[in-house]
Write a protein that binds this DNA or RNA. Sequence first.
DNA 1: TTATAATTGATTATTTTTGAACAAATTTAA
DNA 2: TTAAATTTGTTCAAAAATAATCAATTATAA
Lengths: 250, 250
Amino acid sequence: MNFQVRKQKIIEQLEQDGIIDVKEIAPLLETSEITVRRDLAILAEQGLLVRTHGGAMKVSLSQMPVSFAQKSAVNAEQKDEICRKAAAQIQEGDVVFLDCGSTVFRMCPFIRNLNIKVVTNSLPIINELMGSSVSLNFAGGEIDSERQAAHGKIAVEHFQRYRADKAFVGIDGISLKNGLSASSEKEAEITMAVAQNARETYFLCDSSKLERDRYFPFAGIDFVKHLITDSRASEGLLGEYRSRRVGMIV
Amino acid sequence: MNFQVRKQKIIEQLEQDGIIDVKEIAPLLETSEITVRRDLAILAEQGLLVRTHGGAMKVSLSQMPVSFAQKSAVNAEQKDEICRKAAAQIQEGDVVFLDCGSTVFRMCPFIRNLNIKVVTNSLPIINELMGSSVSLNFAGGEIDSERQAAHGKIAVEHFQRYRADKAFVGIDGISLKNGLSASSEKEAEITMAVAQNARETYFLCDSSKLERDRYFPFAGIDFVKHLITDSRASEGLLGEYRSRRVGMIV
DNA sequence: TTATAATTGATTATTTTTGAACAAATTTAA
DNA sequence: TTAAATTTGTTCAAAAATAATCAATTATAA
């Protein structure tokens, strides 16, 4: 039995049971355990399954409960650097919009002792700032359980009812050519509502996302007045952005 | 059974019951208690649960301020009895308003597998039902950190935008003479908004609160069409309520 | 055919996971 | 409050799984 056939059978079994065991499947494939392991390593590399100690499991099962906390831990150091700078822009008494991105979420520890008013559509932010000195206002509407945030018409209208001194928005992609882009229309919708009803909008974006486009472009680069990024961004790039009148805070 | 599978089962159980016990779950996972503890430690590290002495609990439960958790535990048995009956009134496909009381909160386990739409101003309810089969809609507005809920004009207007099949409202006090009464105006305001925009409103009230008045009366007894209470309520009292055309569900 | 490359299996060393024992800490009961 | 019981952290050893290395087999191409 060659690799292709074994691959077939492994995937098949995985679809059926969700998990497989090296010891169990080796005789079924008429091969040794070490070969099975090698097969699994290859399939894991291709993203077709997730290795476990002693076997493998379906991708969907392994990723099921990815907590917000974990997502927010990706590139944690850069994000903290950005968030410290973002928080420094806020003054006591400000009314602040915060969007629902994982970067913005990390601003919480830096602002929880300020006497400000926060309007947000992010449940993790509300939970995090509950009981702090920040006065909270949640933008209601349909809840997206994946992003743990409200979205849609109602949420947009909620932001439009208020005027904020400052808004802080995480962005998925930005480039000189195509401006701002998002991974979903819903995100873009909220971003625009937030930005248009704040006196100053600060876009947060770690350096890895500079000059990267997402599938849904929704605003030109001229729309961006303040961009906060981390110190890993190249000097040349920063200069180019500045020449387009983007205020860079690095 | 390897770690990945155990992790699955632990999270599953946690979603279902809210808490788990090391002693109870160890045999279910076909492993020793020490291994379960190690698993829990890892999952706690990842923020997927919160460790307790002897087991673990859902993050959402632990984040509740003491006041709410304690309140929700007072008269727990009666409240569960009431909530089971309340949940039995709900049908698949219903749009349901839930208010922010600690009694109503306890309905969550009984409805999390229903295909319904829930509109609420309670953060604990949102956190509890997140990821369930219930479609969620949060009534936004100013957040009251003590009650962990939105209140005020915006929240009221939010409820007014929708029409629900059923509303479930906890009440602090009710009496034949003075009707419904609340401990605060804000609560009464939300209660009225919810009740007036639902086809049927069910008032939840454990028997200890019958014939007890609070400082702010806000609606006559005629306003109450359905009252759900526990079996400790005296027969005579129930009869009196029924004679005032209050539909009693005991 | 012969040389080369790819695949497989066996062996051994290393890593990971698990369970047991016991002291320390925490909770519960008196 | 103190004493008893429970739970936990820590250390160590056993077991299981894996990676690494090398030899054997099979397939491929000149």
